[in-house]
Computed example of a mutant assay.
Amino acid sequence: MNQRTSTRRAQPQAAERQRSVGAVAARTGVGDRLGSWLGHHREMWRESWARFFASPMSSGMTALVIAIALALPAALQLGLTNFQRAVAGWDGQPQISVFLHKRAKVSAVMSFADDLRADPLVAGVTYISPEQALAEFQQASGLGDALAGMGSNPLPAVLLVQPGSADSVALETLAERLREAALTDSVVLDMAWVQRLAQLTALGQRMSLGLAFLLALGVLLVVVNSIRLHIESRREEILVVKLVGATDAFVRRPFLYTGLVYGLVGGLIAWLLVSLGVWLLAGPVSGLANLYGSGFRLDGPGVTYLVALAGGAALLGLTGAWLAVARHISAIQPR
């Protein structure tokens, strides 16, 4: 009896030892896989910065090339922005010359000028009497003696209307309203300089976009070449990792972060270069503006430019790295 009982007890213990010796299949949950994926991303991010500072000369030269390529269109765009701001605050706004009828009474003219000053499209009105107009013409033309012999003043009274906006549509609308006024004889609006300014601004914007596109392409080529060299230097490591079952996504991840770091550092250096250029030019520009009686000051690249340059450069670096690894990583296969 005792022998049978001990035999029955020994059988489950032997089976338990047999199960513990064999292979055990385990399943990983979604949380474990997500944690492992995030952990690998954090590790590659830190490793990319470590590799960047491990070879500061080559990494710094690559980032500096990216920075120069980005700083050129950024500086041009910032210059256009400052130019538009300077023109908007310039005292030489377009003027509309309103020539009045010679028989118009002064009281009616003054009432008409007051009505124009109350118009939201008008920034200011200056009245020039016929006597003032004649005196200015004599001084400017040098025909004072000839004009003095005339029996009457041939010049009419003039209202110099300064529009509140330099927009061509608003100017044409205001000029048309002035032509329809009862006291108006003729209206002269010089739109030539406004149109030239608009065309110059549009040309500068097109040039800035074209330059930015070409230099962004150059940044992509620089990053692609740099990442290709990194891949070739780690070819043996990639072969070993693929032999143990690593996927292409796992292998490409460190190179993508390397391109991201290159672009990010290049964008930060580009912002510093543009800021340095503005600092160097701020003094001479302020002195020139003071000579013309203007309080214009250069606007430097603020936080918006910093975020745009750093983010755009990081995106370019990531795109260039992706183009490099998409071509070269798949070509490296263990035999």
Rank of each mutant, 00 (worst) to 15 (best):
E131D: 14
V278R: 06
M1H: 13
V109Q: 10
A123V: 07
L134F: 08
P130S: 06
Q132N: 03
G283W: 08
G311M: 05
E237I: 04
A69Q: 01
A140S: 15
I238F: 02
Q93K: 15
M150P: 10
Y257H: 13
V30G: 11
A313G: 09
L276K: 05
L78W: 04
A324D: 00
K105M: 10
L215A: 02
N2I: 11
L280W: 14
H328T: 09
L72N: 09
G320A: 02
S165R: 02
G311E: 01
A104I: 02
W49D: 02
A74M: 12
S186A: 03
D114S: 11
V187E: 01
L298T: 02
G39L: 07
A324L: 01
L215F: 09
A140D: 14
L318C: 08
G31F: 02
L280V: 13
Y127L: 14
I128M: 13
G245I: 03
K105I: 06
V24A: 13
L214W: 06
L214D: 01
V21M: 14
R253A: 14
A326E: 13
A113R: 09
R327G: 06
H328F: 09
N225F: 12
S20Y: 07
A202P: 04
L134D: 05
R235K: 11
S168P: 10
L116F: 09
R103F: 03
Y292W: 01
Q195G: 11
Q162S: 15
W90I: 03
R51N: 08
M150V: 15
G79C: 11
S36G: 14
L309P: 10
Q13V: 11
P301L: 08
D185A: 11
Q195P: 06
E237T: 08
V244S: 02
Q195M: 10
D114I: 07
L121P: 05
T28I: 13
L159H: 10
L268E: 01
G287P: 03
Q138L: 07
T173V: 11
D114Q: 13
L76Y: 08
S208Q: 06
S97L: 15
V194K: 03
L323S: 10
D299G: 14
